[in-house]
């Protein structure tokens, strides 16, 4: 645990000094909060129930995109940055275990993603009072809260797993960012489904998505852990 905390602190210090990472982690949440508010305000003025549900569902999905996208910048830099600086070998020469190193890298991306997502949701709730005349009734419901607090960790973990797999194979940050954008698929696919539905998000739908995400997260993390071994890093990573 001590080594994981040491690594987390190092990762965050580096990320905070990287303007690109910082911008990516802060701009998108601000944009999504604004977009979600806009959807809610628009939805309240719509009389057609199906259209209103689509707008509200879209607002929810903005908060499910955040935990998948925010870790991309941090995780890509965390691995490709190490490759570019050739700093992994000295790190691997310490007593840190492969799993500690993996968890240090993964949590360094997942924790800020969750904190920022939930803080953004809080900000959205707060801003909805002056802008939407109060918290909309469909927002503080079990499906919404289950999605915000249950699905976001799974989305983050899946995203980090995909990013780590891609970054382990990519030799430069641009290629890693490009291919890591696949990590956005898990929240995008439900967004399309939700947007076409004429009913509000239900517990059943969140449950199905949660089940799929658990399988996806376990699968990609298992692959990422296998790739994240000293032997692999030193002999196979380019």
């Amino acid at each position: 645990m001590h080594n994981i905390l040491v690594l987390l602190r190092k990762e965050w210090r580096e990320s905070l000094r990287n303007k690109m990472v910082l911008f990516g982690a802060l701009f998108l949440p601000a944009f999504m909060v604004g977009a979600a508010l806009f959807m809610i305000v628009q939805g309240q003025g719509v009389d057609i129930p199906g259209a209103q549900a689509a707008l509200f569902n879209t607002a929810l999905m903005y908060f499910l995109v955040l935990p998948a996208v925010i870790p991309l910048a941090i995780a890509v830099y965390s691995i490709v940055g190490e490759k570019e600086q050739q700093s992994l070998e000295p790190l691997l020469a310490t007593p840190v275990t492969d799993l500690e190193l993996f968890l240090g890298k993964a949590l360094a991306s997942v924790i800020p993603a969750l904190v920022i997502t939930w803080a953004s949701f809080g900000l959205f709730l707060g801003l909805s009072i002056p802008f939407a005349g109060g918290v909309p009734p469909h927002v503080l419901t079990i499906p919404w809260l289950a999605a915000i607090f249950g699905l976001t960790p799974l989305l983050s973990l899946t995203s980090v797993g995909i990013t780590m797999i891609v970054s382990s194979r990519a030799s430069d940050a641009r290629a890693a960012y490009q291919f890591s954008s696949f990590a956005i698929l898990p929240p995008i696919v439900p967004l399309i489904i939700y947007s076409t539905r004429k009913a509000l998000v239900s517990v059943a739908l969140v449950g199905v998505e949660g089940g799929v995400l658990i399988v996806a997260a376990v699968a990609v993390l298992a692959i990422a852990v296998r790739l994240f071994r000293r032997e692999q890093i030193l002999t196979r990573w380019k």
Partner: peptide, 23 residues
């Protein structure tokens, strides 16, 4: 190692502190 492999966005002291703590 042949390449210094240091963290360029960390200070000289933070680089050493990281490894001192890991050890």
């Amino acid at each position: 190692t042949e390449a210094p492999g240091l963290y360029r966005r960390l200070s000289a002291r933070d680089n050493l502190l990281l490894f001192a703590r890991l050890h």
